[in-house]
Write a protein that binds this DNA or RNA. Structure first.
Lengths: 107, 107
DNA sequence: TTCCTGTTTGGCTGTTTGGCAAAATAGACA
DNA sequence: TGTCTATTTTGCCAAACAGCCAAACAGGAA
């Protein structure tokens, strides 16, 4: 075992925060630079209040950080190492989709 | 944006599965080799049925795979690239804990 | 000051999750 | 065959979550 339970629980919080389609979509979008809430709202299409709540989950997990400039609040990624992992989980998803296609063909 | 929504949703499922302390604890333990359900049950301490349910979540997300040998069911990690990401989120957690300590000291 | 705009918070509802206990299942082995 | 033993499934309840609307808030502009 690598870490103790407290440690694990904190890390789980990070994963949990990433474990929602809207949140992951926003995080993914933030990979190419900061965005204001309005941008992200346009991206996911939910109610503004819903988006804001999702963002606060990401913020509390330490995945994004914020800065208010002028009238807007800008969110940017503060978890740097997503890149490789997203690539990896992406591959897993692809592999799974492919094998499901195989199963369909096999019937 | 890297992927489409379906893609993102599938990836989110992976993160969501990792986003529970017991599940992450088990996944972490599986990093040094396969274990049977009884081992994992001893590790997390929950009811056997609860552990089994957690494991099925991990299995459906494609994070672990299973093999029945003799009387036991063995679980092993099938998501290979956790290593680096866990290290990274671990660092984030550490940094956060440290800054919380600073805040405590500053009072 | 008031108004406007972008964002967050509070409250409500329906849905999902986590956990235990009990029942069901699948093999192994006598 | 029957009986263990390890695991999964089912049923239930409480707690947490997701989403919307409305209200509150903060800062800039008039």
């Amino acid at each position: 075992m690598t870490h103790n339970r407290q440690y694990i629980a904190e890390q789980a919080k990070i994963f949990k925060a990433l474990g929602h389609p809207s949140r992951l979509l926003m995080v993914d979008a933030l990979r190419d630079g900061e965005k204001c809430v309005c941008d992200l709202q346009a991206l996911v299409g939910d109610d503004m209040s819903t988006v804001s709540k999702h963002l606060s989950v990401l913020r509390e997990a330490g995945i994004v950080s914020t800065e208010k400039r002028g009238t807007n609040m800008y969110y940017r990624l503060s978890l740097c190492c997503l890149e490789t992992f997203l690539t990896c989980t992406g591959r897993l998803v692809e592999k799974r989709v492919l094998s499901q296609l195989d199963m369909l063909k096999a019937r």
